[in-house]
Amino acid sequence: MAERRLFALLGLLALLSALFLGWGLREPAGFILSLRAVKLASLLVVGAAIGAATVMFQTVAANRLLTPGIVGFDALFVFLQTGLVLLLGGAGFATLPDLAKFGAELLCMLLAGVALFGVMLRRGAEDVLRLVLTGVILGVFLRGLSGFAGRLLDPSEYSIVQQASFATFGAVDSTQLAIAAAVLAAALTGASLLAPSLDAAALGSTTARAIGLPFDRIALLALVIVSACVAASTALVGPITFLGLLAASLAHAVLRTWRHALLIPGAAIIGASILVAGQFVFERLLGQQSTLAVIVECVGGLLFLFLVLRKSRP
């Protein structure tokens, strides 16, 4: 049963979290534990947000290859970072109050995501392909713009952008974490209300509409939730493109169900588990600090290639 497998996943995540917190704990234990707890929480929030968002996104787009990252969200983030550094200079960027910066980034990305998706969806849900292509092109455009802007920066400013443009779990601010967690909680609540409608939406827009689902409205609501999740996670740690693909694909493969009431939490748990397990291996066992995002991207990217190649076979 899919329910039982979901509980097994939850157990696995609890185990991983305990390992992450407790492995090789030294004095001062209380202090180290609190550091680890913040890091664990950020891994959980980011993994869950990206996993849940990707499952919903794939259902609405009727495509199991896509992730919100692939349609340009990451590029928007990097562009925002570069723009800020360019506007304020390296020193100004560094002195910007963290909370204000975080809030502004979150808001910008949420608005941009909803605007992009909203405008596209007004033309009817059949145009999801157009949305995706627009997103991809927008991503390339923004990345190009960021690259160009990067050249205008001096090396020290550029290194700030570089740092902010790649996912890092090292220095997460606990206030930001609290905001992101609150956004995630709201998003998951919305997702659970939307889950039965997403089940129907997965039948395809024509069939869904024929059985009385207001498809466009459901799709827009889902995309608002997706935007909130991705915005929260990206603003917190930076862009991770392929984690969602891993989490969503595994959720479908492990749970083998069409019920979004199970798929969404399943993908959230798997996304979080991947990050916690990866961080545990790299940080505790291998003593590496910063390679997790690289490995996740690498494995996820390979999966993406595999899925594309398998799909495109005649």
């Binding site: 129907a200 039948l203 059985i211 689902l213 169900t257 069409w258």
Partner: peptide, 18 residues
């Protein structure tokens, strides 16, 4: 065409959606 892993009974139950 349906991509989700539906059984026949699940599919027919979707007919009752309204």
């Amino acid at each position: 065409h349906v991509t989700a892993r539906l059984t026949v009974a699940d599919l027919v139950t979707f007919g009752r959606w309204p």
